[in-house]
């Protein structure tokens, strides 16, 4: 008896979580503007999505920003983790505390504070400022996914390589990097996903007609329901699903 209650309860929870997503996906194929009545199958909304310049431009900016920001964040964050690992304990603590600020602070506070800085420096809000903002909220995650790899590494690796005559750069490339590589790649993937998904911080740090997909969805949704958004949701959901499956496979492999 209680077993059935439990199953029923979990079933209800899954229904609650998935119903909205299923509705979005199903009605993205609906041959009508309605998002409630099924009128037959069509791919029209995907077609009009592809012809929507505003959305296509946002897609372009989303991918551009995510690529540039995640590469920059990964490079800066990886070297940072290297440096942090060899810092004295109190320095390490201080730096990691600052590192965690963007993760703890509400996004809206991070967003408005970066916006304040950009305006005060009279940087024009747009693509550049959005990339800086994304790098800023990505770096902490890269640092936190690379740093444990340094901690797992045998302590004397760097010294051993350098005693054997490697230059510091050569030692980093040939000895240290292979050890931390899984953490670097995971960090890069997390950064990329966060970047693609971000709305609040982008919303405050962009301008000049530069929008990402989240901002496009927000401004379209505020004006009402558009079936193109359903089509977009389906595509975005599938993309993120594939990305996350890859990330998950990676972290699982690392566990073993």
């Amino acid at each position: 008896m209680s077993k059935w209650i439990k199953r029923f309860y979990i079933g209800l929870m899954f229904a609650f979580l998935y119903a909205p997503i299923v509705v979005l996906i199903v009605f993205s194929f609906n041959d009508s503007k309605s998002t409630a009545k099924w009128e037959g199958f069509t791919l029209d909304w995907y077609n009009s999505l592809l012809q929507n310049d505003y959305i296509m431009k946002s897609l372009y900016y989303t991918i551009l920003v995510a690529l540039v920001a995640s590469v920059l964040a990964t490079v800066i964050g990886t070297f940072a983790a290297f440096g942090i690992f060899y810092m004295r304990s109190w320095q390490q603590k201080l730096v990691l505390n600052i590192n965690s600020i963007p993760m703890l602070n509400p996004d809206i506070v991070t967003g408005v504070s970066l916006m304040t800085l950009f305006v005060a420096l009279s940087l024009p809000l747009g693509l550049g400022t959005m990339i800086i903002a994304h790098v800023t909220f990505n770096i902490p995650y890269v640092v936190l996914s690379v740093l444990p790899k340094f901690r797992q590494m045998p302590n004397e690796m760097l010294e051993a390589a350098m005693d054997l005559g490697a230059t510091p750069w050569y030692a980093f490339k040939k000895v240290i990097f292979p050890e931390i590589k899984p953490g670097v790649i995971t960090g890069a993937l997390i950064a990329f996903t966060l970047s693609i998904d971000d709305f609040v911080i982008s919303f405050f740090t962009t301008g000049n007609g530069v929008t990402n997909l989240s901002i496009a969805v927000y401004s379209m949704a505020r004006r009402g329901i558009k079936p193109e958004i359903n089509a977009l949701s389906t595509l975005m959901f599938t993309t993120v699903l594939i990305l996350m499956v890859i990330i998950n496979k990676r972290t699982k492999k690392e566990d073993i």
């Binding site: 929870m13 899954f14 979580l17 998935y18 119903a19 909205p20 997503i21 509705v23 979005l24 009605f27 309605s34 998002t35 409630a36 998904d197 709305f199 997909l213 989240s214 969805v217 927000y218 949704a221 329901i225 958004i229 359903n230 977009l232 949701s233 975005m236 959901f237 993120v240 699903l241 996350m244």
Partner: peptide
């Protein structure tokens, strides 16, 4: 349980607009 979280936050909220709306499901 984790999969729905991978969907963009705005789209998840937008989904409820279509469900709860005047002509919604």
């Amino acid at each position: 349980f984790i999969v729905p979280m991978w969907m963009n936050f705005l789209l998840r909220t937008y989904a409820w607009m279509t469900i709860l709306g005047k002509n919604g499901i």
